[in-house]
């Protein structure tokens, strides 16, 4: 029974590091959806199942929103590489390792700050928040920035769920998550696609 939270923590570690390394948007959104599953489990440790499921549904809706938008875009747009940012997988892995070390170092401190919360919950929350910030710092692409912000918020929501059970706040944070996904989708599609040649000829 006590092993499950640690398995979920491992899942969150894999998904968040995967988000950092992945260059394929399909993989990224799959990892994001899996991340929300882990987040959901950790929140159920402190919230009623029904209320915690709001987070899961919201997260999956956000993933679906981005996915549907991305599906409607041409592959060429996805290939726009960001030359000014470090792109090497090794570099990202190294940065992720630094975040993990920081999480390991900070978790006991937070444990004393918020008593009554299990270590995997704190570590999971800090891992997501840290990886989210790292993702934000390594990109200027609207899709990746949206993923970074959603990951950061997911980490925060795990931690905050342990201290605040307001339904209004849960609803507002759901609006923020969905709003972020919609804004991300809007910014991804804001630049016009070039018209296909056959349309011009027609």
């Amino acid at each position: 029974m006590t092993l499950i939270p640690y398995i979920v923590l491992a899942l969150l570690l894999v998904t968040s590091v995967g988000l950092l390394l992945s260059r394929d948007w399909r993989w990224s959104l799959g990892l994001l959806a899996a991340q929300y599953l882990g987040m959901f489990y950790l929140i159920t440790l402190h919230w009623p199942f029904s209320l915690a499921s709001v987070k899961l549904v919201t997260g999956w809706m956000a993933s679906a929103t981005i996915g549907v938008t991305r599906l409607g875009m041409s592959e060429n747009e996805a290939e726009q590489e960001e030359s000014s940012w470090p792109r090497g997988r090794l570099f990202r892995l190294f940065a992720a390792a630094i975040v993990i070390v920081l999480v390991v170092a900070t978790t006991p401190k937070v444990e004393t700050l918020i008593p009554g919360i299990s270590r995997p919950v704190i570590a999971g929350a800090l891992t997501l928040a840290g990886m989210g910030i790292l993702l934000l710092g390594l990109t200027a692409d609207p899709l990746r920035i949206t993923l970074g912000l959603l990951t950061l918020l997911a980490g925060f929501e795990i931690l905050y769920a342990t201290v605040e059970t307001s339904i209004l706040l849960a609803g507002l944070l759901s609006i923020v998550n969905l709003g972020l996904a919609l804004v991300g989708a809007y910014l991804m599609t804001a630049a016009p696609e070039e018209e296909p040649e056959e349309d011009i000829l027609a």
């Binding site: 934000l136 912000l149 950061l152 918020l153 925060f156 905050y160 923020v176 972020l180």
Partner: peptide
């Protein structure tokens, strides 16, 4: 990004 980071 900055305004969202402020919330948590």
């Amino acid at each position: 990004a900055f305004q969202t980071i402020a919330v948590p």
